[in-house]
Design a protein around this nucleic acid. Structure first.
Lengths: 340, 340
DNA sequence: CTCCTTCGTCGAACCGGTTCGAGGGCGAGC
DNA sequence: GCTCGCCCTCGAACCGGTTCGACGAAGGAG
């Protein structure tokens, strides 16, 4: 039942049981065995709440992500999985908190009620009140993504600017001159989501550098939106021969839109973007893309957070990742007849 | 800081502050306002661990799912999202526990250390030690899926037998005579996962009823495995004209395998199965399938669990769902020339 | 033989809430 | 005017651990 019960049955005091379990003071071998036997018999495990209250640590990490109203993307899901696994390796549990908006109830619960020792934030915005709030309180947190001013903060991020630019250069090298950009949904762009902004930035600058003609689009996070977006692209400029996308969930729809328009990938039209490998391999032809290393990022985020928890005064650290483009089957040279 | 600090500044006792917050005893309007002002000034929120210790409830639900080593399927991910959202509506947090195996460390933590008030289990096996254990302890839990003996238990499940059978009948009605079944990976089947078993059962019985020639396959949870499996199917019996699958993650590979073999869907080959709508819509042509209502199931699981927590002696309840087949574009009449 | 350590154990206080029983103040009823 | 009862409020105990200071016994040094 509780530690007092164990103590009574072992004929020792509560504190001795506690020391036997924690090893923070020496306990005679004989006493330790006596206690251990009682514990094994009763299947005793110390109560987590009591322990958390006494030593001020909950052994739980918070994972803060936007509410699922708009479905999760595969990338977000991969993050969740890898964070949970990595946390388990450090003996931390993970508490999920669907808190997109600033200072909402769920977020407050996590922090102010001290349910978690630290937090990992997903879907960061360039100006993010949640992050500002955490930084101001010096609360141990690590972001997956980074805000506009991120030098003195803890995060693991993708270099979306460089990745989008790499996609543009890849297409330009293949001879494409008129390309489109399919971004995340418009409300996310307006809200300032960093991947949407930096990706768009990288795309636009690289395209200007290479003198390409571009159009940029926002697209809902689902297949039907992807198809509609593809139709719009071909309607707006039928001479478009390639696109770059950050929108994983729209990918299936984009492919369908191309098929419906009679464009063969990659002969008539090239598609590339920033997408986790397992999703890039789902479509046919498989997508040439900068593979988002979601698992690695989740693991790194946990490692950083654990380090920050163990060394409260450590200097901020971060990892900026820029995976190379994996050449698969969705891009090819611009068709001479099609190029404008 | 803590309730004592609030009490001191408001000039009352700690118990009065507690009652003012909980409303379990009446507090004069004046005192209440005084306390509230101090709380607002200091931004006080009661410590969750202390509260949990005192009243024996953590306001947290555990979500037990298999470790991500084998990646999550879209369905699992939809469950996680909907469970978290539904739980938030009832003021519960959700603690994730990656515990596929019986009685492993993470599972023990949740239960024995009383980190959660109740648990939701995913990926149930026909004989499931975890479930037996929970039932034996009368621990408040709800399964997404059901064991072999499930009458006196709490669960939300899909009628996989009926769904697989419905798929078979749909194909038989279209004139298909030689069909295949693509199941979840073999190790899951061997481990006794209920969806794999019941789905296979329903498929086999319905096919026998209709006098169809069948082959059944296990297939890894990813696109490359799906493609390999498709190749095997066409190699083993080139006259196969349709298949039924429970394996969402393999779907993209199955389509690719068909394309590689020059089989057009649905003209030359029909594909159907049990898949969440948003994934069925991702492939081209869109999949005719029994749409797994993942969101509804997650919500129902939380509702059942909350009810069980509120009424510890309530009789077991469950929901068996059998969504109809949504006709999309991946099935068609057996081609006269192709049918054996 | 005495003094001083060291080792093992214990009791008590504490973490920050909740809850119970008791008691003070005040108005109503007789 | 006294008593009864109600409304508020308070102090103390409790939830189940951890941790600190103290203390008795055993052992080594002088």
């Amino acid at each position: 039942m509780n530690i007092g019960e164990i103590a009574k049955r072992a004929g020792v005091s509560r504190s001795t049981v506690s020391y036997a379990l924690s090893g923070k003071r020496s306990v005679s071998e004989e006493t330790r065995r006596k206690i251990q036997r009682v514990i094994d018999e009763l299947g005793y495990r110390p109560n987590a709440s009591a322990r958390a209250l006494a030593n001020g640590r909950t052994s739980t990490l918070g994972l803060v992500f936007p509410p699922a109203g708009n479905h999760y993307t595969g990338m977000q899901l991969d993050f969740i999985g890898s964070v949970v696994e990595a946390a388990a390796a450090y003996d931390y549990d993970v508490l999920l908190s669907p808190s997109g908006m600033d200072s909402d109830r769920s977020f407050q619960r996590l922090l102010a009620e001290r349910r978690v020792d630290g937090a990992i934030l997903m879907e960061i915005r360039l100006q993010d009140d949640r992050v500002d709030h955490l930084v101001a309180e010096n609360f141990p947190a690590v972001c997956i993504g980074r805000t506009a001013r991120s030098d003195d903060d803890w995060w693991v991020g993708l270099d979306h600017t460089a990745l989008a630019a790499a996609c543009v250069h890849h297409l330009a090298d293949l001879g494409h001159r008129r390309i489109a950009f399919v971004n995340r949904p418009e409300h996310l762009l307006r809200a300032g989501y960093e991947s949407a902004h930096r990706g768009l930035d990288g795309f636009t600058k690289a395209a200007a550098e290479r003198g390409l003609t571009v159009r940029t689009y926002c697209c809902g996070d689902d297949a039907p939106s992807g198809q509609a977006c593809m139709e719009r692209i071909l309607h707006d400029d039928p001479a478009t021969t390639a696109l770059v996308t950050l929108n994983e969930a729209a990918l299936g729809g984009i492919y369908r839109g191309l098929a419906a328009a009679g464009r063969h990938v990659p002969r008539d039209f090239s598609v590339t973007g920033v997408v986790a490998a397992r999703w890039a391999e789902t479509v046919t032809p498989q997508l040439t893309a900068a593979d988002v290393p979601a698992e690695q990022m989740g693991r790194l985020a946990v490692e950083l957070l654990v380090e920050r928890l163990d060394h409260p005064d450590a200097a901020p650290r971060h990892h900026l990742l820029a995976p190379p483009i994996s050449l698969r089957a969705s891009t090819g040279p611009a068709h001479p007849g099609t190029a404008a």
